[in-house]
């Protein structure tokens, strides 16, 4: 009976092919350092899940952002857990992604045929930092407000274009409701969409070329 259902589904979904091509692949002998990529993916998923939950109560407006975060932390069951995981997940994700990149660098895994995987990986690293930068402002507390003031100020030192970049980042010359709103949009829509897309490409390339092996004297 189950066999029949499975066969019916397999005929239409190609489950066995999927299993063979995605999961039952041969790989070089694994190394614990090779788990950092999947750890980054795991953290991304955790951030996505907790982030989605946070938007249930969070309000991106200077009047309410602070109070809504306070409500999440003190008024909602397990709000402290969801926000705690999101907060610490951000920190861990920056570390894990960075160490993953160092591992790839030191084992020279970016070389032929994995150049594009590296290129996309650098993009993922920059997007991760962007997520951290935009997410930091959202609680609208003293720390985040002034950190963002300084951070955008630094972008404003670019010769000739500085003032323009500053205004584009802040949505005006000053840090305001517009800044909060566009950082929120970037943090929950634009950057995650870009991240998800690049992660897909990154994974496709890893499956296509296989995980690189740990270099030996011959390499």
């Amino acid at each position: 009976m189950w066999k029949k259902i499975f066969d019916w589904l397999d005929e239409r979904l190609g489950l066995v092919d999927l299993y063979k091509n995605l999961l039952d692949r041969p790989e070089p002998q694994g190394n614990w350092w090779n788990t950092l990529g999947s750890a980054s993916l795991f953290l991304f998923i955790m951030q996505a899940v907790t982030g989605i939950f946070l938007t249930v109560y969070y309000t991106p407006s200077p009047d309410h952002a602070y109070d809504s975060i306070n409500y999440i932390m003190n008024g909602v069951a397990f709000g402290w857990l969801i926000r705690g995981i999101h907060h610490w997940g951000a920190t861990l994700m920056v570390i894990v992604v960075f160490v993953h990149m160092l591992r790839v660098f030191f084992t020279a895994s970016f070389k032929y045929p994995r150049e594009m995987t590296w290129l996309i990986g650098v993009g993922l690293f920059l997007l991760t930092l962007g997520m951290g930068f935009t997410g930091y402002l959202l609680p609208w507390n003293q720390k985040s407000y002034w950190a963002t003031t300084v951070g955008t100020q630094i972008a404003g030192t670019v010769p000739f274009l500085g003032d323009f970049i500053l205004k584009a980042l802040r949505g005006g010359s000053n840090l305001s409701a517009l800044t909060l709103q566009r950082f929120f949009a970037a943090h929950i829509w634009m950057l995650p969409a870009a991240l998800a897309g690049l992660i897909g490409a990154h994974l496709y390339l890893i499956i296509k070329h296989g995980e690189s092996h740990f270099p030996t004297k011959d390499d």
């Binding site: 692949r25 041969p26 092996h213």
Partner: peptide, 19 residues
């Protein structure tokens, strides 16, 4: 290296999951 290696599922995924 691949011939001397392991399977992605479950060997590699198991390590990933532990981490």
């Amino acid at each position: 290296q691949v011939n001397r290696g392991e399977r992605f599922w479950p060997d590699s995924i198991f390590k990933d999951l532990i981490v």
